[in-house]
Computed example of a mutant assay.
Amino acid sequence: MNIHEHLIKKCKSLIPPLSQNLHKGQNGRIGIIGGCEEYTGAPYYAAISALRTGADLVYVFCYKSAAPVIKSFSPELIVLPYLDSPNAVEKIKPWLKKLHSLVVGPGLGNDPIAHESVRQIFQHVSGDADMNDIHLPIIVDAESLNLVEPESFKNYNGHIYLTPNVVEFSKLSKRLIGHELYKPTQDNVKAIINKLNGKYVIVLKGEKDIIADDKGAVVNGQQGSARRCGGQGDILAGSMGTFAYWATKVENYDYVNNLSPEVLASYAASSLTKHSNKVTFELKQRHMITTDIIKHIPTAFQDLFK
C-alpha cells in the first residue's frame, strides 16, 4: 500500500456513516459567500459540489442581481440575496450560527461593498464569543484571499483553510509575512503558517497540491486532468467545505504522519477533485467543462472512498 492509498484509507474515517435515524442537516449545512452579477457560476459550482460530496443543505449568500440566476441553476440550493445589501452583515449573522462550515470567495468579484461585507464577517467570527463556541471551519478562496490580514483570525478558535493557487500564494505571502514566496514548496507553505496567529490550513493548488498546517504537511501528486477549464477550484472549495465539517466530528483521532484531521480533510477534497477531473477527462478530453466534472463527483467519491 503506497502513501496515497494509506491516506485515502485514513480519509474514510472522516466520512460519517449513513443511517435511517439521521435528520436533514446532520451531514452538513454549508454556507457559500460569493456570487456577483458577473460571476454566477463559481458559487453554484462550489455549492453543488458540497452537496454532491455529501452535505445535506447549502446556503448561497450572493448579490441581489445574481440570486435569480443562481436559483435557476438548481432547486437544491437555498439562495439568499444579501451580500451587497447596506446591512449585509446583520442579515448574514443569524445564519452563521446555523452553519457547519463556511466557504468564502467563489465569484465574489471586486465590488468594494461586498469586500467590506466579507471583512466585517471575518471580524465578526473572530471577535464574537458565540462564534468561538461554534468553531466554524472557514474556507477562504478566490478573491477573499486578498482580504486576509495577519491579524484577521487571531482570536478565532475555528480552523481557517486558505486555498491559493501559485499566483495568489505569492501575493498572500507578501501581505502576511512581508515578502513574496514564489516557489510552491512545503517549506514556503510552512513559512507562512509559522508566522500566522490562529489555526490555519493552507492548500496550495497546482499540478501537485501542497497541504499543511502547524502539525504536518503532505503533497497530493495524484493525476488530475490536462484540461484546465474554469471552475475546478470552486469544486475543491465546495467539497472542502463538506470534508472540513466532517473533520470537526471525528473522535479519538489516530494521527498518521503528524497529519491532523483538517489536513486529512483537505487531502480528501483534493483527491476527490483530482479524481473527478481524471474520470471526466478520460471521457470528454479537451471538450470537458466543469458541469461535466460535477456529474462525475459521485463516481469519483465511490472509487476513492467505497
Score class of each variant (00 low, 15 high):
Met1Ser: 12
Met1Gly: 07
His4Pro: 09
His4Cys: 12
Leu7Ser: 05
Leu7Cys: 07
Ile8Gln: 03
Ile8Arg: 04
Lys9Asp: 15
Cys11Glu: 01
Cys11Pro: 01
Leu14Ala: 05
Leu18Glu: 14
Gln20Val: 15
Gly31Asp: 08
Gly35Val: 00
Cys36Met: 00
Glu37Lys: 10
Glu38Ser: 07
Ala42Lys: 00
Tyr44Gln: 02
Tyr45Ile: 09
Tyr45Trp: 07
Ala46Ile: 08
Ile48Trp: 02
Ser49Asp: 04
Ser49Pro: 08
Leu51Val: 12
Ala55Pro: 09
Leu57Asn: 08
Tyr59Gly: 04
Ala67Lys: 07
Ala67His: 02
Phe73Arg: 05
Pro75His: 06
Pro75Val: 14
Glu76Arg: 08
Glu76Asn: 08
Ile78Phe: 10
Val79Met: 08
Leu80Ile: 13
Pro81Trp: 01
Tyr82Cys: 03
Tyr82Thr: 01
Glu90Ser: 06
Lys91Asn: 06
Lys91Arg: 10
Ile92Thr: 00
Trp95Cys: 03
Lys97Asp: 09
Val103Ile: 13
Leu108Thr: 04
Pro112Gly: 02
His115Tyr: 10
Ser117Met: 09
Ser117His: 10
Arg119Ala: 07
Asp128Arg: 10
Ala129Arg: 15
Val140Ile: 13
Val140Lys: 06
Glu143Ser: 09
Glu143Ile: 04
Leu145His: 04
Asn146Ala: 12
Asn146Lys: 15
Val148Asn: 05
Glu151Gly: 03
Phe153Ala: 01
Lys154Asp: 12
Asn155Gln: 14
Gly158Glu: 02
Thr163Glu: 01
Pro164Cys: 02
Ser170Glu: 08
Lys171Gln: 11
Leu172Arg: 05
Gly178Ser: 07
Glu180Ser: 14
Leu181Thr: 00
Lys183Gly: 01
Lys183Tyr: 10
Lys183Asn: 11
Asn188Ala: 00
Ala191Cys: 05
Ile192Gly: 04
Asn194Met: 10
Lys199Arg: 13
Lys199Asp: 12
Tyr200Asp: 06
Val201Pro: 00
Ile202Pro: 01
Lys208Ile: 13
Ala212Ser: 11
Asp213Met: 02
Lys215Tyr: 07
Gly216Pro: 08
Ala217Leu: 10
Ser225Ala: 12
Cys229Phe: 00
Gly231Phe: 01
Gln232Met: 12
Asp234Cys: 05
Leu236Arg: 06
Phe243Val: 10
Tyr245Met: 08
Ala247Lys: 05
Asn252Gln: 12
Asp254Glu: 15
Val256His: 11
Asn257Cys: 11
Leu259Val: 00
Val263Trp: 03
Ala269His: 02
Lys278Asn: 15
Lys278Ala: 14
Leu283Lys: 15
Lys284Pro: 06
Gln285Leu: 14
Thr291Tyr: 02
Ile293Lys: 00
Thr299Asp: 15
Gln302Leu: 15
Asp303Ser: 13
Asp303His: 15
Leu304Phe: 09
Leu304Ala: 09
Leu304Asn: 12
